[in-house]
Nucleic acid binder design. Structure first.
Length: 597
RNA sequence: GGUCGGGUAGCUCAGCUGGAUAGAGCAACAGCCUUCUAAGCUGUGGGUCAUGGGUUCGAAUCCCAUCCUGAUCACCA
């Protein structure tokens, strides 16, 4: 039972005793006491004044008195306006810290056999271009959500659906075939995904040329776009692919292979991974089957031209296409097939799709479609819908070359971290390998934290001209604090100090210390909230608060030079546990923390 | 036009299940290293919380309207 629950109960009793009124516990509002007032926990009195028929101040006094008499943990109180500020006893805080210290995975719940299985789909790249900043947000959010859901006692399966087929893939294949002169990653030294991406861009350029030529000859834009030879060729290529043309298929395999090697490097660099990867080329046919089933069941209907639709007007939505008139599949079809494949393999209790908010409508429809097709989890699938990453000028546009490449960005961040470390002379005495590993952690930490600290639902702005900060509310600031604590702990060990797990009950506590313990104690509920709200940002902001508070404490009080032994031990134990929570919290964001930096 | 988001300091963002004088960081300026890591700490300036109404003891937070902005409404993915 937490102190908050305890106080809530006693406040309810107090109101019952003092005013003979039963008050629902939801009406008992507790909050942390603001810094400028004395106390740790504050009870908001306003909701009770009606029952008390007294002024807020008087009511507060009466309830305060009752609490103090009936709960030894409450040491003193004061009432300011309608707020009852309670000071909690030192003994309570010390015990709380001891308890936190005993839990190695403090704040985390372990999953067992009977835990629900949550599948999280994220990343979901197209194989025609390299990953960019938008994908980075997706990948970081997906990975972090996985960690958070896991930490809340669920089994998690991370999955990825690779969009490896379709007209867009054929475009880069065609461009390579026509203009590539046999270029390979080996021959050019380019990363495979970048190489393929170049041909996708090239296709677009050549295609635009053709379109404008046709328009010059008198065709309107729509006609020209349809009739451009390159587009016709690409479509022909897709048909050949679908009919299993050997040459096309081989080209497709070769080029996708290049891309996968590139993606794997990027994923590895980002520190994200998957438990199972699906490929659209392997699932889209299954989707078609499932659509046929739906047709037979009468859930779907076929038009005269052979196209298959679902009518969602009863749900307030439109009619939605599931199969084209020529029998080829669309986006939705593939999702249905992938869903079936996953469902066959895993006992999925909850499915989470990490996909941008531009696809809100798609998932609204998908949920209903899956439900109608008989997937038990279809109805309450979660579309984790996150906002776009925008540049100061607006949306990133690959055709205009304004995309921020994922590999470049990570490399830049690591390089900046490396330079900063050198400038500050922080890594003297480290081996080159250690120094490089720290630069990697810090550079990546800066990028990851920058992205994850903002509310995922909101669009965010990234300014490539202003590099991501390393000071203030940033990943490196948090990592730095962790390194600092570790440094103190190392020194303590060198001095032969053994940090006790039991503290002297007579140990005194200053405000920073009790405040830190109180913050530490919040961690489990933050972890829980992050899962129910699907928000890594909550974790990020919490850790920042904790770290900010710790740095003030660190600045104001010395630890190893403290003369009072019990106080010194307390501060060490406190520091150790702050480091522990920093590390596990950052772990939930997929951010590593160094021992020194 | 329909549907769904978003509008908080010069900039990037917290706060949004209603509670005290709306918070951080960056940028600017001024301080703090013979003391456990200054990637830190302290201070100053900076706000009609888009606008107008409403509900309430109390509204950045809830409701309504308006304005601005984004996404979406494809036989694209």
């Amino acid at each position: 039972m937490t102190i908050e629950q305890k106080i809530t109960d006693i406040v309810a009793n107090a109101i019952q005793q003092l005013y003979a009124t039963a008050i629902p516990t939801e009406q008992i509002q507790l909050q942390k006491t603001k810094k400028e007032f004395e106390g740790d926990i504050t009870v908001v009195i306003f909701p009770f004044v009606k029952a008390a028929r007294k002024s807020p101040e008087q009511t507060g006094q009466e309830i305060g008195n009752y609490l103090k008499q009936n709960e030894p943990v409450i040491q003193s109180f004061n009432v300011i306006k309608g707020f009852l500020n309670l000071s909690i006893s030192t003994a309570y805080w010390l015990e709380l810290l001891e308890k936190i210290n005993t839990e190695k995975n403090f704040g985390f719940k372990a999953a067992d056999e009977s835990s629900p299985l949550v599948m999280i789909e994220y990343s979901s790249p197209n194989t025609n271009k390299p990953l960019h900043l938008g994908h980075i947000r997706n990948n970081l959010l997906g990975f972090s959500l996985g960690e958070i859901v896991k930490a809340n006692g669920n089994k998690v399966v991370k999955t990825n659906i690779v969009n490896d087929r379709g007209i867009h893939i054929c475009k880069s294949m065609l461009a390579w075939q026509k203009y590539g002169k046999g270029e390979t990653p080996e021959s050019s030294g380019l990363k495979g995904d970048h190489l393929v991406g170049n041909y996708y861009v090239l296709f677009d350029q050549k295609y635009k040329q053709e379109v404008s030529e046709l328009m010059a000859k008198g065709q309107n834009e729509e006609e020209a776009k349809k009739n451009a030879p390159l587009m016709l060729e690409a479509q022909e290529m897709l048909r050949k692919w679908e009919s299993g043309d050997k040459e096309v298929y081989q080209l497709w395999q070769t080029m996708n292979g290049w891309v996968y090697v590139g993606f794997d490097q990027t994923y590895k660099k980002l520190g994200v991974d998957f438990d199972c990867i699906y490929y659209e080329s392997e699932t889209y046919l299954l989707g078609k089957e499932k659509v046929q089933e739906g047709l037979e069941k009468g859930v779907l209907y076929q038009r005269e031209d052979g196209s298959v639709w679902i009518d969602l007007t009863a749900e307030g939505l439109d009619e939605k296409l599931l199969l084209r008139s020529d029998g080829t599949s669309v986006y939705m079809t593939q999702d249905i097939g992938t869903a079936k494949m996953r469902f066959d393999k895993y006992p999925i209790d909850k499915m989470v799709y990490v996909v941008g908010n531009e696809q809100n409508y798609h998932f609204q429809v998908l949920s209903i479609v899956l439900d109608k097709l008989g997937f038990s989890w279809g109805k309450d699938l979660v579309h984790f819908s996150y906002g776009m990453v925008e540049l100061p000028e607006g949306k990133m546009k690959s055709r205009e070359g304004t995309v921020v490449d994922a590999d470049d960005l990570v490399d830049d961040m690591v390089a900046t971290a490396r330079e900063t470390s050198q400038e500050l002379g922080k890594l003297e005495g480290c081996t080159e390998v250690e120094a490089e590993n720290i630069a990697r952690m810090v550079g990546l930490g800066a990028l990851k934290y920058f992205i994850l600290k903002v509310d995922p639902r909101k669009n965010m702005t990234f300014n490539p001209k202003e590099s991501i900060d390393f000071n203030g509310n940033t990943g490196p600031f948090i990592q730095y604090t962790h390194a600092r604590i570790k440094s103190v702990l190392r020194k303590a060990q060198e001095q032969g100090i053994v940090i006790p797990s039991k503290l002297d009950v007579n140990c005194s506590l200053n405000e920073k210390e009790s405040g830190l313990i109180q913050l530490l104690a919040d961690f489990p509920s933050i972890v829980n909230q992050a899962a129910t709200e699907y928000s890594p940002a909550l974790i990020a902001n919490y850790i920042y608060d904790l770290v900010k508070e710790y740095n003030q404490f660190y600045h104001d009080f010395s630890i190893l030079k403290e003369e009072n032994k019990t106080v010194k031990e307390l501060r060490l134990l406190l520091s150790e546990n702050v480091a522990k929570v920093i590390k596990s919290g950052m772990g939930l964001l997929g951010i590593e923390v160094p021992e020194r930096m």
